[in-house]
């Protein structure tokens, strides 16, 4: 099984990778890549279903065992099942599903995001009490500058602050973020190569 999985991972990966760089020489590789990717995205969508079924089973077990918080789990399962069958019957773009989306999903998520404002501010205020170092100070100063530069006063923008804020964002922050992006890209490159070489087998081939 291990050999099979490694073989599949390497072969499929190399086929897709060749579609990036060798499609000019071998146009068929583009088609191969497309078919492989099409299969992959279908399986990914099915994997989402698998995850949802797993969620159902977990909370159903909690309800069955009567664990603490099983009421919430029951609510979760019920709401999930209802929404699923409603979506299957009515389709997701139906007006009823719009009500579900606009009445439950969007308000809840947005409210949670709104509460994050309080939490972020609270954390920023308490940061220097816990940790006083250069990075914390720079972090807070930068945040204050950007926040201040993003705001306006009733009489207009604060002179030079907006410009300075944008300069910090577009120059100083750009250097750090670019370094982070390059680092992320290097990490992705390394990880991809390890997978294609069979060194990493996150699919359980260890």
């Amino acid at each position: 099984m291990r050999v099979i999985t490694v073989f599949i991972a390497i072969i499929s990966g190399l086929a897709v990778l060749s579609g990036y760089f060798l499609s000019g020489l071998f146009p068929v590789l583009t088609e191969v890549q497309t078919h492989l990717l099409n299969g992959a995205i279908i399986l990914t969508g099915i994997a989402a279903l698998v995850g949802i079924f797993n969620l159902i089973s977990v909370h159903t077990d909690k309800v069955r065992r009567g664990e603490k918080g099983s009421v919430y789990s029951a609510l979760l399962v019920i709401s999930l099942v209802i929404t699923f069958f409603l979506g299957i019957i009515l389709r997701p773009e139906h007006d009823a599903m719009q009500v579900v989306m606009n009445g439950i999903v969007i308000p809840t998520e947005a409210a949670l995001m709104g509460i994050l404002t309080i939490s972020l501010l609270y954390a920023a205020i308490r940061l220097l009490r816990r940790r006083v170092d250069m990075m914390s100070i720079i972090f807070l100063l930068t945040a204050v500058i950007i926040l201040f530069g993003s705001a306006t006063l009733p009489f207009g923008e604060i002179p030079l602050l907006g410009t300075f804020s944008r300069w910090v964002t577009q120059v100083w922050a750009l250097g750090g973020v670019r370094g982070i992006l390059i680092g992320v890209a290097l990490g992705s490159l390394t990880t991809g190569l390890r997978v294609l070489f069979g060194a990493d087998r996150p699919y359980g081939g260890n």
Partner: peptide, 17 residues
């Protein structure tokens, strides 16, 4: 909200510092 954040972070930061 931005001004409150700036004020609170700056003032609260100093105080907590």
């Amino acid at each position: 909200g931005m001004l409150l954040a700036v004020v609170l972070i700056f003032g609260g930061g100093l105080l907590n510092f």
